[in-house]
């Protein structure tokens, strides 16, 4: 009986020792204010473009980098950060096509991403007032945008919305009829002097916190000390086996 108890204790002990390697969570890593968006084609508008945007928040200032490819070349592409407290804080879906035109214009995207809060102009004012300042936006030579602008001042609400993953980056300008320029009879819902092609949303992505700090990708099973431990434990168990074996042999002899 006592042997059974000892065996039980030994098994429990070894189980405890073996799980030592599994361990607990490590100390927290501090997240910085990096948010990123993967920019993908807006539903229904059929633009084969993509991109990324990164916004770093420092108090009420943001630094923005953006890269995109596949846009209508050599044409101004208005680009903004959108946020609305009442918006869904996401990119528009096909069901946002309220007028049934088969494409999405900027207003139809409103319920998804809300109004403009930052205009990503290359120079000058970055407020919503510059939302359609077509002469100050990137013209995408070769269909590509490589944009960088630092120290844009935003309101505390907007800074918070960006940090919370509720803001949306939208790049506008869609050549629906593939003739290489903005044209067509449909006027922009934002500015009747522009065709809707110039202002329809092309690519879109929600800014969300990027991962921060290291990753816990190990159990420790191949680190050297564990082998020593296993060796010692295994040796101990074998020694114990010698003892119980001798006991069993003696009992067997007694019965004979």
């Amino acid at each position: 009986m006592s042997i059974t108890t000892k065996l039980g204790t030994a098994t429990l002990g070894s189980a405890l020792l073996l799980t030592l390697g599994a361990g607990m969570a490590q100390a927290a890593t501090v997240a910085d204010g990096n948010t990123m968006a993967t920019l993908r084609p807006v539903a229904l508008n059929g633009v084969k473009a993509s991109g990324t945007a990164m916004v770093t928040v420092n108090g009420n200032r943001i630094d923005v980098t953006m890269a995109a490819s596949g846009l209508l070349p050599d044409s101004p592409h208005a680009a903004h950060i959108h946020f609305g407290a009442d918006a869904r804080n996401e990119c528009p879906q096909a069901s946002d096509d309220k007028d049934g035109s088969g494409t999405l214009n900027t207003t139809e995207g409103g319920p998804a991403y809300g109004p403009i809060v930052v205009s990503l102009t290359k120079t000058g004012d970055t407020s919503p007032k510059s939302g359609l300042a077509v002469d100050r936006f990137d013209t995408a030579p070769g269909g590509k945008i490589s944009y960088e602008r630092g120290s844009i001042t935003v309101s505390p609400d907007v800074a918070q919305a960006i940090t919370d993953g509720k803001s949306v980056v939208v790049v506008h300008g869609v050549d629906h009829n593939n003739d290489g320029k903005y044209d067509g009879d449909t006027k922009s819902d934002l500015d009747p002097s522009l065709p809707t092609e110039a202002t329809d949303p092309a690519i879109c992505g929600v800014l969300a916190a990027a991962p921060a700090g290291g990753v816990q990708t190990g159990g420790g099973g191949t680190s050297t000390p564990d082998n020593t431990l296993a060796l010692a434990l295994g040796g101990g168990l074998i020694l114990a086996a010698v003892g119980t074996g001798a006991f069993a042999a003696r009992k067997a002899t007694n019965r004979l």
Partner: peptide
């Protein structure tokens, strides 16, 4: 004795 033998094998 049987218990001890079993224990031996397990160990």
């Amino acid at each position: 004795g049987v218990l001890a033998a079993v224990a031996t094998v397990v160990l």
